[in-house]
């Protein structure tokens, strides 16, 4: 398969994740969307690395995965804390920054 095929697949996953981030009411649901988007990025990185014959992209994929896991752990911790303080996991209710 060509590089374009892999990039198109990654783009599709990315856009689905984006859609989830924009639409989900639940904060955990939003986090899931973010995970999807990051995955799409990883696919991109690996595909470019392999088609370009350069190992750097693969190394950075390792880094990205680690960072993503950290992000997921922290994000979920924030969700729990948020729930304790505000008694809600619905993103719509979190509007302290409203103008």
């Amino acid at each position: 398969m060509s590089l374009q095929a892999y990039l198109t697949l990654a783009a599709a996953v990315f856009c689905i994740g984006l859609f989830g981030v924009m639409t989900r009411r639940n904060t955990i649901g939003i986090l899931l969307g973010i995970e999807l988007m990051l995955n799409a990025v990883n696919i991109n990185l690996v595909a470019f690395a392999r088609f370009g014959g350069d190992v750097t992209g693969l190394i950075f994929t390792v880094f990205t995965i680690c960072i993503t896991v950290s992000e997921a752990a922290l994000g979920l911790a924030i969700v729990i804390l948020l729930f304790r303080v505000r008694r809600t996991v619905t993103a719509d209710h979190l509007d302290l920054l409203r103008g």
């Binding site: 993103a91 979190l94 509007d95 920054l97 409203r98 103008g99």
Partner: peptide, 8 residues
């Protein structure tokens, strides 16, 4: 009104 404060 544009600044709803909702991250989404």
């Amino acid at each position: 009104g544009m600044q709803t404060g909702r991250a989404q």
